[in-house]
Write a protein that binds this DNA or RNA. Structure first.
Lengths: 143, 143
DNA sequence: CGCTAAATGCAACTGGGTTGCATCCTCCCG
DNA sequence: CGGGAGGATGCAACCCAGTTGCATTTAGCG
């Protein structure tokens, strides 16, 4: 099954309209296997079909609301998004290379620590980001 | 010891120049006891003395490089900063209320989970953010 | 097929953060 | 204690990720 087909199915399952921008954007995220910035998504789509900047922003927001994408927040100026396949969803952390700026999903993360919240607080989500240097960058930069 | 005096001492200990903006900004962070946005800092300083927007940005960047402040990244458009007192430094997580947007430091966090990094990667820092609703907001909003 | 509400495209805008450069001020050295 | 040098500041202009308003298109229903 191509990521295109998978994307279409996932969009269809939400019950909302199945449109080309939604499929294309989700498909791009599925192919990437890592978190992409809006800019990266735009570049990849530009190559194939012209989809408006604003539409991409709106689709990403919609995907996030529907739980099909996850907004990843790092120390950059921009946000990143990665695809979430509902059945295979699992909590994972992200790795951010301070040197080359790439972001990757980290597998093999144990359950995050039970953080004790003050009385009356409700925790809905936990974000865990490791920052450092990736394999390509670590050797060159002693830190 | 006032936060003003403490700020001055901390700045002096870096060996770099002791200037009014550096002391004022750090002092503001020390007083706040929570992570502030640039805008919040600016407002608090405006009340007392006029320090330029850009200078605040540069001081914050400098404080972060010197390890006297910590840049906290959340899902907002802007960044937040909190003061770090070297001797008392301790790893702590942050709580972000999705409803009212305030950010607080969470105490009592165990050592974060040992995340297994791929071969050749180097982890320098871990950021842990819990998102949810704070005590003031949780009751009103069922989620 | 035709309608309607939802989604898209386009243009203009917002605002957090940055850059370039002239001026100021800390602090070192005599 | 009085320069002098260069690091820090202030100001103006800028950049760019993300947003808003509105006219146009289109998915999907009857």
């Amino acid at each position: 099954m191509t990521s295109q087909d998978l994307a279409e199915e996932l969009v269809r399952n939400t019950g909302a309209r199945v449109t080309r921008p939604r499929i294309q954007v989700l498909s791009t995220l599925l192919q990437a296997q890592r978190a992409l910035t809006h800019h990266e998504i735009e570049r990849r789509l530009r190559r194939t079909r012209g989809i408006d900047r604003v539409t991409i922003y709106r689709v990403l927001e919609w995907l996030t609301r529907k739980g099909l994408a996850h907004r990843v927040v790092l120390g950059e100026r921009s946000w990143r998004f990665d695809a979430v396949i509902p059945q295979r969803a699992h909590r994972h952390a992200h790795f951010h290379c301070d040197h080359c700026g790439t972001v990757e999903c980290l597998e093999g993360v144990k359950e995050p620590p039970k953080v004790r919240l003050p009385q009356g607080y409700r925790g809905d989500d936990i974000e865990l980001t490791v920052k450092g240097a990736c394999a390509r960058c670590a050797p060159q930069r002693a830190r």
